[in-house]
């Protein structure tokens, strides 16, 4: 009996300045395959459907359990993590493309360092005095912890930026992930004391005002983070901060 097979089409580009080509691979079907397994199959036998020799596909992946955020790509038109994209659930042929809102490195691999850079610019950390023993941290209600925990699960995958109509060459919105992190740090008892600079960072170009409420972000977040709530909450915080610092000085 011939093995059951299926087709995977991959958008490939050696470098961002080189020509795009779509390659088709015919892979042997096994139960419970995901997109990562498809890419490994190709790496082991990098021959396209027409039989011509190609190279293993470049892509980012690490934990393979949807918690490191590395393997985000566009699978059948939707940005998602490749490790949880199960072949059984996907329409065939499966189409794989790199995220489009980040500089391309090669094939399915992109450079998302801008997100980490933006976490830096928005001062997303708790400024502790030092690592020496200063006793326990501030008390926190279980309710606050619950909200904070939901926000702190952001894996910086970039799906929310990919899907956002306000992230493109004409607009440099930081994206819901970063705004949501600002909310996280602004709600922490210590982080709250330093909310001002974070909010001010979100007032410049690319800041919170660029959000036009299309609310796509929340639909593609693999961690189910309440991003639209974060956007609204931080919008309110920025406004109050702006009004306060105008009338009372900062």
């Amino acid at each position: 009996m011939a093995d059951k097979t299926f087709i995977v089409k991959i958008k490939r580009q050696q470098r961002s300045d080189e020509a795009v080509r779509w390659e088709e691979y015919e892979l042997r079907y096994r139960p419970h395959m995901n997109v990562i397994i498809c890419l490994r199959d190709i790496a082991e036998k990098p021959f396209t459907r027409s039989g011509s020799e190609s190279t293993p596909v470049s892509y980012e992946a690490n934990c393979l359990e949807e918690i490191c955020g590395a393997c985000a790509m566009i699978v059948n038109g939707k940005p998602r993590q490749a490790c949880t994209a199960l072949v059984d659930d996907l329409e065939k042929p499966i189409r794989l493309e790199p995220l489009t809102k980040f500089p391309l490195i090669r094939d399915l691999q992109v450079d998302r360092s801008s997100m980490f850079e933006n976490l830096k610019r928005t001062k997303c950390w708790i400024p502790i005095d030092g690592t020496y023993d200063l006793g326990p941290g501030p008390r926190m209600s279980p309710e606050t912890q619950e909200v904070g925990y939901a926000l702190s699960q952001c894996i910086t995958c970039g799906n929310c930026l990919e899907i956002c109509p306000k992230v493109n060459e004409n607009s440099h919105f930081v994206g819901a992930a970063i705004v949501s992190q600002v909310r996280l740090f602004n709600m922490h008892p210590t982080g709250k004391m330093h909310a001002g600079p974070r909010l001010e960072a979100l007032m410049g170009p690319g800041g919170i005002e660029d959000c036009d409420n299309a609310q796509n972000c929340v639909k593609v977040c693999p961690k189910g983070i309440p991003l639209t709530e974060s956007l609204a909450a931080v919008n309110g915080q920025v406004l109050v901060h702006a009004v306060k610092s105008f009338f009372r000085g900062s």
Partner: peptide
């Protein structure tokens, strides 16, 4: 002390009703 340090760094540890770890 390491737990305390992480707590001060803002780790969202689960809490008791009293707000302790």
């Amino acid at each position: 002390a390491i737990i305390d340090l992480l707590d001060r760094m803002g780790v969202m540890f689960n809490r008791t009703p009293e707000g302790l770890l």
